[in-house]
């Protein structure tokens, strides 16, 4: 393994950790709004780290560009989905959990 490989592996594993956090949050958190927080933020960071981990291995700059483009699209989709779902939940009168 080269130094790049170690860097790549570290980024990929860190990314997977955030995906795990997103899923655990989805299962553990008390209401739909807090679950959205967990899923949106953790999964997007997870994908971002994975994209970085794969980008350092990429063979061409256009491949790096494509990976980054995919991440940007997922970010945009993620922010829109979070907004749509939480707005829908609010309009349908789903109360938020309070401590």
């Amino acid at each position: 393994m080269t130094l790049i490989d170690y860097l790549s592996a570290a980024l990929l594993i860190a990314g997977a950790f955030f995906f795990l956090a997103g899923t655990v949050g989805l299962l553990r958190f008390p209401d739909v709004y807090t679950r959205l927080h967990a899923l949106t933020k953790a999964d997007n960071v997870g994908l971002g780290l994975m994209v970085m981990g794969l980008a350092v291995q990429a063979k061409s700059w256009s491949a790096v560009g494509k990976l980054v483009l995919i991440w940007i699209l997922v970010l945009l989709a993620g922010a829109s989905i979070a907004h749509l779902v939480s707005r829908g939940a609010l309009q349908r009168g789903i109360d938020l959990w309070r401590r």
């Binding site: 950790f17 955030f18 956090a21 655990v24 949050g25 553990r28 958190f29 927080h37 967990a38 933020k41 953790a42 997007n44 960071v45 997870g46």
Partner: peptide
């Protein structure tokens, strides 16, 4: 943001 939410989750 990711670290913050991961901390709360675990």
């Amino acid at each position: 943001g990711g670290i913050d939410v991961a901390w709360r989750v675990f």
